[in-house]
Design a protein around this nucleic acid. Structure first.
Lengths: 347, 347
DNA sequence: CATTAGCACTCTAAAACATGGAGTGCTAAT
DNA sequence: ATTAGCACTCCATGTTTTAGAGTGCTAATG
């Protein structure tokens, strides 16, 4: 057995051990493996291999005469295999339920996201999380203004995705309704159909160019608009229900629960993680200390991106113990992301 | 000792016992009371009185040779005294901090409420909750419309309190921008300065009267408006951070934490409780099973209303174990509500 | 006669101890 | 190379012991 590679049999035994551990949630002895799998090998042989796997860092032992427990390195291998080679087929009744739950929601993206997080929680018994598309990626459909008082105007942005953002703007000068209408028309003409990111670069550079020339009113319009889109990049992290979660032995200690809540409460932590992966497609898994955040070091997170009809991407995921049931969770997350993408693609 | 009344000394001993229990969080023996308070009485006497108090239902005993524990009836007496007669002076540095925290927030009521819930959590180490004024009580300042597409219009309501609500309305007929402007003007003229409740009764009855007569456009306006204000009565219940909470021995068991979270997650439960008291002023305390909701039966909630410059009332409160530190929490909640009212009253 | 010292009694939480079994690592046999 | 056999380790569980906190009662006391 070389250091760099595991032979086929070792892999199988490692797999069997990890799977058993996830199922039984307690250290796995050699005999358990022989009983649950028919490798045609005796416990003694399994034991020898297991000793090697410990040597190589894939397994560990709570104490001398105990069974074996997967290490993060072990989970990594297990999960990678799960992601690449093998997918558990999803239960059709479950698929139906998922479909129903998400389709029963009115076409409001935030409600949809919220329901998704709840659905993920409900079906996984871990903690589901979901965030809507990042503001910078949403496509602007319409801009409007509602007079608030003489010096203030509420700017309303509507995105193609159906996201509505409000921002109260204090004006330097008094504007008539006529002016406001003109500004509205101008901005809608220039801006509609672009993403906020595009607008920021394209239009605002244009602004500095046009600064000297042109209509005084347009200058004003651009100034107002610039203020309107500089909201703080708020993250709406929705987390599903958590009270169903800590039945699981993994979450059974107070300190664990505490950590979990710290992690969940500092939503920007989660947003940061979910954000980091927003670039790549497909399901990704971060195991234990791979999450650089301290509060998350005992947990794993399974995430995937989804897309809407335009180009915006959001992220959904499940937070669970490092020994979570990846075999079921990964397809669940994958399929949920796909379903969400589907729904958001429909006219 | 009559059944109906406690004599002065019994009250003192009961008070001392409850206070000690809250401080020490474990059953209180007669000797503890004599040591912590100088009643000039021996343990034996205290014991006799305590036996009476058990008889009368103010105290209980986990087992024969244990100290005494307050019952809900006991807490009730204790809390009522606390509410009526006696207020712990608040630490001035704390007052300063509270003031700073709430004043550092921009004048956005929802942000303010959120911060309040967090502040309550932080300073009490229990769970702070806060809800903004009920929709029906807010005073309308302005209404506006932003065209979404040919058949849809986004209705924007701005309240005096600074609350903004959006509702997407599907139109039966196509409206020109001119029509929309007219409708906007008409509605603003009719409606501004009224509470939603007033509007609902007054204007909508007027609507049915004017139905037959009058401008066709006004009829349309009223129809649109009616749809606009019939949003679901959503409760934004903000809960502060919880991860700091279960250091406390009271929250030390898994099942307790579980209950707590069930209670918190079903926010409408809390909203219901907070709602019920929205009528009366001042601080109120609900102890254990006084909260009719099952999930709350092991907890107490200390609540108070706050008012904004107009007539709207919101509620804030703290959820903690029945044996929570009422002596500190009650003034905290009272003062926070006052501060909030103050801030919301400023121009 | 209310109060209290004194004391036997109760119950528990914590410590100390005992036991069974699950699981290992090694060795010798296949 | 595999595995049966076995001595050994360690923990989880259950049992026993112990110390002490607290009570309720009784008899003594001002």
């Amino acid at each position: 057995m070389t250091m760099s590679e595991l032979d086929e049999r070792s892999k199988k035994i490692l797999w069997a051990t990890i799977k058993s551990y996830i199922d039984l949630k307690s250290p796995i002895g050699s005999e358990v493996v022989t009983k649950r799998f028919s490798f045609g090998l005796s416990p003694a042989t399994i034991r020898n291999t297991m000793a090697d796997l410990i040597e190589l860092g894939y397994l560990s032992q709570p104490h001398t005469s105990a069974g074996r427990v997967p290490t993060e390195k072990g989970y990594r291998l297990y999960v990678d295999a799960l992601l690449k080679e093998y997918t558990l087929p999803l239960d059709p009744t479950f698929l139906q339920q998922l479909f129903n739950r998400l389709h029963s929601i009115e076409k409001n993206i935030n409600r949809l996201i919220e329901e998704t997080s709840k659905t993920l929680s409900a079906f996984s018994h871990y903690v589901g999380v979901a965030i809507p598309p990042q503001p910078k990626e949403i496509t602007l459909k319409r801009i409007g203004f509602v007079k608030h008082s003489d010096s203030k105007v509420l700017c309303v942005l509507i995105s193609e995705e159906g996201i509505v953002k409000n921002k109260l703007i204090t004006l330097a000068e008094v504007l008539t309704q006529r002016d406001l209408n003109k500004i509205t028309n101008y901005l809608n003409h220039e801006i509609t159909g672009l993403t906020l990111n595009e607008i920021k670069t394209k239009i605002l550079s244009q602004m500095s160019r046009e600064k000297t020339i042109c209509d005084e009113l347009i200058a004003k319009a651009l100034r107002i608009f610039k203020e309107a889109i500089t909201w703080l990049p708020e993250y709406n992290v929705y987390t599903g229900e958590i009270s169903g979660t800590y039945n699981l032995p993994d979450f059974a200690t107070i300190s664990q629960i505490k950590k979990l809540f710290k992690a969940i409460e500092y939503k920007h932590f989660i947003a940061k993680i979910l954000d980091k992966i927003a670039e790549s497609d497909g399901v990704q898994v971060f195991i234990g200390s791979e999450n650089t955040i301290y509060e998350m070091e005992d947990f794993s997170i399974v995430v995937s991106t989804y897309k809407d009809r335009y180009i915006a991407r959001g992220t959904i995921g499940i937070i669970g113990p490092t020994g979570m049931d990846y075999e079921h969770v990964i397809p669940l997350v994958r399929h949920t992301a796909e379903t969400l993408t589907e729904i958001l693609s429909e006219g």
